[in-house]
Design a protein around this nucleic acid. Structure first.
Lengths: 212, 212
DNA sequence: GTCTATATAGCGATAGAC
DNA sequence: GTCTATCGCTATATAGAC
């Protein structure tokens, strides 16, 4: 167990937490190294630059997250609801058990879809693409009345509703005055799956082959 | 027509565009004043601080946007689809016609739900709250099988899918390889309304009065 | 109302000792 | 691998002339 690894991991944990709470831009390397109990220069030694640190924060979690999603997808029996659970549950699991810091990562990722930074957008597009396509294929088998573009649109809405639930729960809490518990994974999952499964099963907007 | 007003509006337009493209934090007052053809000190004269400018950028558009939503809601005949169109269409309209700069505002607002800044969150919560509640009431009449918390959850998903569509269209474009046109308001609206109306009409998760 | 000049602070990055 | 010290730059904000 080298001390290198400890510092590296401490930096990743600190960055993850601060990125989730205050945003990437607003988290200075000084704040990150202070929280990690490390030196400012350590970031450049281990990651080369702030951008390198950002990429490392994402890739540490997205790989395992997507593997878990695909594992659950391959075990699912065929219901649209099960496909949705395979996609959504692993994210909520991160908030529950969590190897310590990954609790925060869900919030970070929920918000990072809409990050203006080209670097972050490239990370999201590349890291999520293959997983996304596998889920679209799985849904295509279960929703034969829909063309592939329609399934893409609808899975886009699935991702949007999930991301919004994770990163904008404060709105639901404020408007429901305590009646909805946006931070409760079970409650959120139940409502998400019911709503989204019905949306996915809706009749096709266009008949197969029809043009817009 | 005072020159004051021109400078003030030019600053708001420039800020709106840069906030939408690069984010609020990443847009410096120097870049904003340069694009507006104004002096750096003008921001502090007209708005007091960057935070004052941010608030002014949002409140200039959200009021009229919400009035248009409520106008359409009051004219709707009763279909769930019409309620959804009253909520969504005015945002897409901003991208089309637009008094010049408001094209960009939709992108900015779609992303600002998940902004980490407490100031921005407060703006979103306060400015959208009354409109949000009116739409939830309207849906409650049309979906009598759902309790109020369930309607709140579902309308939260509606907002999430819409915000994601507006601000994360780059993902759909990338994954569909040109088959889906995330930037086309007509296409997006059609798919959104079909999907979301079916989600709203889904059977209740809990029977009335039941506890989680 | 608009300008220049500047105060004050923070940023990411790097060189070089240990 | 870790540290101190520092470079070069940019940020928001303000004072005071015009």
């Amino acid at each position: 167990m080298e001390t290198t690894t400890d510092t590296r991991e401490a930096l990743l944990d600190a960055a993850e937490g601060l990125f989730a709470e205050h945003g990437i831009q607003a988290s200075s390397l000084r704040a990150i190294t202070q929280q990690a109990g490390a030196n400012l220069a350590a970031v450049h030694y281990h990651f080369g630059s702030k951008e390198g640190l950002v990429k490392a924060v994402f890739s540490r979690r997205i790989g395992p997250l997507n593997l878990e999603r695909l594992r659950r997808l391959s075990e699912s029996t065929g219901e649209v609801e099960e496909v949705l659970r395979a996609f959504i549950e692993p994210v909520f699991e991160m908030k529950r058990e969590a190897p310590e810091g990954s609790r925060q990562f869900a919030r970070l990722m929920g918000r990072s879809f809409s990050e203006p930074s080209e670097d972050v957008r490239a990370i999201m597009t590349e890291e999520l693409g293959p997983m996304f396509r596998r889920f679209v294929e799985a849904l295509a088998c279960r929703l034969p009345h829909l063309s592939e573009p329609e399934i893409l649109w609808r899975f886009h809405f699935v991702a949007g509703a999930m991301a919004h639930t994770i990163s904008c729960g404060y709105l639901l809490e404020a408007y429901s005055k305590g009646a909805c518990h946006a931070g409760d994974p079970e409650e959120a999952l139940e409502h998400l799956v019911t709503f989204l499964a019905a949306g996915l099963r809706a009749p096709a907007v266009h008949r197969e082959g029809e043009r817009t």
